[in-house]
Every structure is written in C-alpha cells, then in structure tokens.
Amino acid sequence: MKVGNRLLAGALVVDLLACVYWVFHESGTLTTILDPNALHALVIQLGAWRPAAIIGLMVSVWTPSSRQRAKSMAPAH
C-alpha cells in the first residue's frame, strides 16, 4: 500500500470517528453514556434486553488499559 493511500485511509478513519463523536454529542447519547445515573436508568428501562445491553457495554468499555488497571487492583495470590 502506498504512503499516500495509507495517509488517506488514516484521515478517513479520523474523520469517521469525529463524525460519530459529533452525532453522539448532538443527540445527547454521549451525555447519557458518561452519566452513571442516566445510564443506569436507561438500562433499567430495557427490560428483557437488559443483560444484552450490559454485556455490550462491558465489551465496548473493556479496553487493554482497563484490563491492566484491573490486574493492578486485583489482590495478590
């Protein structure tokens, strides 16, 4: 892959992420996701879909850096 194509692909990814952020910000979704009380209320409203929503949130938030923090906070064996 040529350097120009890689730069274009990188710029497109950054633009896509910026667009997703903007849509989440404008729609209020970002505020809901970042507010624990609002997120809790939303999950409670889901009823039967609640387990799938919780799993989806855990998978989307469980990044390598959070795994490292979890390991450092775990009790020693």
Rank of each mutant, 00 (worst) to 15 (best):
V14L: 13
L7E: 07
A11M: 10
A53S: 14
D35I: 03
P64Q: 08
H40K: 12
A74Y: 03
A70W: 12
L16K: 13
N37K: 15
R6D: 11
Q45C: 06
E26Q: 09
V13S: 08
V3M: 04
L39V: 03
G56M: 02
G4R: 11
V13N: 08
S65L: 03
R50N: 00
H25D: 13
L7D: 07
A38V: 10
G28H: 05
D35A: 05
H40S: 13
L46E: 09
K2A: 12
A11T: 05
P64D: 08
V61T: 10
L34K: 12
L30C: 02
N37L: 14
I33R: 00
V14A: 15
G4N: 11
Q45A: 14
R67A: 11
L8Q: 14
H77F: 10
T32N: 01
L34Q: 08
L34T: 11
A53Y: 04
S66Q: 11
R6A: 09
I55K: 10
H77G: 13
W49L: 14
V3E: 05
L42E: 02
G4M: 04
V14D: 00
P51C: 07
W22G: 06
K71W: 03
T63C: 02
R67S: 06
C19T: 12
Q68V: 14
N5S: 13
L12Y: 01
S65A: 06
A18V: 12
I54D: 05
H40Y: 03
Q68K: 07
L16S: 15
L16D: 07
A53M: 10
N5G: 11
Q68A: 15
N5T: 09
A70E: 12
L17T: 02
Q68S: 11
M1L: 15
S66V: 09
L8G: 02
D15P: 02
L42K: 03
W62P: 00
T29W: 08
M1Q: 08
S60H: 09
P51Y: 06
